[in-house]
Design a protein around this nucleic acid. Structure first.
Ligand SMILES: [Zn+2]
Ligand SMILES: [Zn+2]
Ligand SMILES: [Zn+2]
Ligand SMILES: [Zn+2]
Lengths: 141, 141
DNA sequence: ACGTTTTTTGCAACTAAGTTGCAATATAAA
DNA sequence: TTTATATTGCAACTTAGTTGCAAAAAACGT
């Protein structure tokens, strides 16, 4: 059994061809991927609905997480395999969107700052997206 | 000239019937509104495209700002009329999404926390959405 | 290895959000 | 009031995502 297949098993996801491929695409990606990104990389060998359903399964089983950018497009990235599993999702971190290349990166080293909310509001979770220039685009300008 | 019309003028937006109505809907709203919310309140007297275009104009002229929730739906709320205008948009603040009623609220009293990014990243802006329970929904549970 | 149960996949059809081009209309300025 | 410019309605289109159902593929018990 390959490493990818082990990862799927650990998250209680049955191993199939698309799932192996999509997971390998994620593990190679340096930034969060949209459905369209994955469809492009898969090369139209699989139905778009299958890709949507695979993403939902990966999400539900704690293998990936979702970031929605200001344009409303969902992007997905691998979770920290140690932190997240079927039961709990504990991989909260800041995301960075480059205004030049449009890519969204996970910033695992940035701490989530504490926010004190006004009276009456109950805190559940904080989502932070920072806009700016990524390393690569900063060089190239 | 009414107060609403003055506000439109101050943001260099020509006064028309829809624009007066949509601005008045915004000024009465206690939370951020989606295109669908506005269409519902207008009562189908105006074309959906006109509403989209009005929202874009208001946005470009610094009268409203946009928040995209995790479902990818755009919502809009009035900017602080003192802070934002045609030239500059200086109304950065935290938003709160209630997981129960689904409404998004502007939290003008919460300070944007400083984040220090990893080497190489250039900061432009920070977007924060807090999920939780709003005042009203907390009471009702 | 074999048949059975359960999941997964492909296909087609559908919804919801948002955009574009163009002609008709309304606003603002001279 | 005339003219120039901006706005609106309509129709058509795009893109993202969902649903139902039958066929195919895994997993399971013997
Ligand atoms: Zn970049
Ligand atoms: Zn991430
Ligand atoms: Zn609420
Ligand atoms: Zn706001």
């Amino acid at each position: 059994m390959t490493l990818l297949e082990q990862t799927l098993h650990q998250h209680q996801i049955r191993v199939t061809a698309v799932r192996r491929l999509i997971l390998s695409i994620f593990s190679r990606a340096g930034f969060a991927l949209s459905h369209a990104d994955i469809e492009r990389q898969l090369g139209h060998d699989y139905d778009r609905v299958t890709i949507y359903r695979t993403l939902r399964t990966f999400l539900e089983k704690g293998l990936i997480h979702k970031v929605t950018d200001d344009a409303g497009v969902a992007r997905y990235a691998l979770c920290d395999l140690q932190k997240c599993n079927v039961e709990s999702h504990a991989d909260e971190h800041v995301h960075f969107k480059c205004v030049h290349c449009g890519h969204i990166f996970c910033l695992n080293s940035v701490d989530l700052p504490p926010l004190h909310l006004p009276e009456g509001y109950v805190w559940y979770a904080t989502t932070i997206i920072v806009d700016g220039l990524c390393k690569t685009c900063k060089e190239g300008l």
